[in-house]
Design a protein around this nucleic acid. Structure first.
Lengths: 110, 110
DNA sequence: GGCATATTCAACCGATTGGTTGATGATTTG
DNA sequence: CAAATCATCAACCAATCGGTTGAATATGCC
């Protein structure tokens, strides 16, 4: 159980992986399309997706030769519960979240 | 700004560091006392505390020869906002949090 | 069949991580 | 002053990370 937290937080610690998650918020995507905005090899993105998948943050389903990536937000619940215990933060604040996305993804938010 | 998220999530990815944060929830502690429950050298704990401090998750104040460590829960706010955007999780759930602490700290919850 | 496309695998690389040990610097105490 | 205590520093180590490249494996299309 705390092993899950290890892999979830470790997965979230990389900005490329957080950007990928933000992209998948909008829609499911194929691996090649996920890789397109990044200045990085396809193999590197494939590894990042593997890390996100093994943390449970996304699922991957192969249809034909295309592997579709889908956000699995439930995997964040345990981590979210853990964090909220430290601060009694205000409840869900989507406006603040949008502001963060805008800062984190300059150029990616089409 | 997203650099902050890098260091906060990376700091949270280690179970020793999460256990330290949970200990500091109860009270401020000296470095030696933080180290006591762990089967690990004092130098290792000192490094962990340095990582937590540079992520802003704790502050350290030296009084005499003792360095006191204090939880800084505000540093989690940005990360919490980021995460909550993915799931619209239910608001603060302290019961679930207590259950997590009990699982994460077998033997540490005196 | 043959070629292009989608994705992963395998080997490699330099940098970072999480730990150790021994020495060192402050500070308190006797 | 001398000895003990609190904490960090410095050097080292094996393991992991984030990236690369080139080859391999499916799958789809003409």
């Amino acid at each position: 159980m705390s092993r899950d937290l290890d892999s979830v937080f470790a997965a979230l610690a990389d900005p490329t992986r957080r950007a990928i998650l933000a992209m998948l918020l909008e829609d499911d995507m194929a691996v090649t399309d996920v890789a397109e905005p990044f200045e990085m090899s396809l193999a590197a993105i494939s590894k990042h997706l593997g890390i996100l998948a093994s943390a449970g943050l996304i699922s991957q389903e192969k249809r034909g030769r295309v592997k579709w990536c889908k956000l699995e937000p439930d995997a964040l619940r345990a981590a979210s519960v853990w964090m909220q215990g430290f601060g009694q933060f205000e409840p869900v604040n989507l406006e603040a979240f949008e502001a963060f996305l805008a800062q984190e993804l300059p150029g990616l938010n089409s």
